[in-house]
């Protein structure tokens, strides 16, 4: 095995170029995938952010009457899409109930639910088991309003300010940390 000094052992500039490019490509790939791995899956920017909330007029899940978007005008609104078939919805349920009780007590913001692509019977059983929301839910059986809001999956929660402009969307269960980040955006003290 002879590996004596190669006459061409002095690297040419071209050789340095591809070596540099290779090292750079390696670093970029690993870096990108590493960041991709640690990024939060629930951070889903909404195309609606900074734009007016889509209007809606839906029948209520429980009882007579309708859920109308115009009724929230002038107050910040939290809109929660949920479904009985969604497992993570159970996880966020107590937090939403707490939030609903606060809204009812202080009235500084409005909150409503949208029962998304669900069977009314299943949805009511879900509420009977987990406890009712202290606020009304409209039904969106075919998911049309979900498409209007650009909903990807369940659960998702939208934060709309007093002027009716969408200020944020959270995908996944609502937690105190999420509220701490989102509520100030719509002018509500967390």
């Amino acid at each position: 095995m002879t590996t004596g000094p190669d006459p061409a052992a002095v690297p040419a500039p071209r050789s340095r170029l591809w070596k540099g490019a290779l090292v750079l490509a390696m670093a970029l790939t690993v870096g990108l995938l590493g960041i991709g791995l640690t990024r939060e899956a629930s951070r889903l920017p909404s195309a609606l952010e900074g734009r007016p909330m889509p209007s809606f007029d839906l029948p209520l899940l429980d009882g007579e009457g309708r859920l109308v978007s115009a009724e929230a005008a002038g107050r910040p609104l939290i809109l929660n899409f949920w479904a009985s078939w969604c497992v993570t919805c159970r996880q966020e349920h107590p937090e939403l109930v707490r939030l609903g009780l606060r809204a009812r007590a202080r009235g500084e913001f409005a909150i409503a639910g949208i029962n998304y692509r669900d069977d009314a019977g299943n949805a009511l059983r879900f509420l009977a088991r987990e406890g009712s929301f202290p606020y009304a839910s409209g039904v969106d059986p075919r998911g049309r309003l979900g498409i209007d809001f650009g909903v990807y999956g369940m659960p998702e929660t939208f934060f709309v300010d007093a002027a009716g402009i969408v200020r944020g969307r959270h995908a996944g269960p609502v937690t105190p940390a999420v509220l701490a980040a989102m509520l100030p955006r719509i002018g509500v003290v967390p």
């Binding site: 995938l33 991709g36 791995l37 899956a41 629930s42 889903l44 993570t88 990807y152 999956g153 995908a171 996944g172």
Partner: peptide, 11 residues
């Protein structure tokens, strides 16, 4: 296998 590209709700 990492789920890095599964776009939505990859909890």
């Amino acid at each position: 296998r990492s789920g890095v590209l599964t776009s939505v709700h990859a909890f």
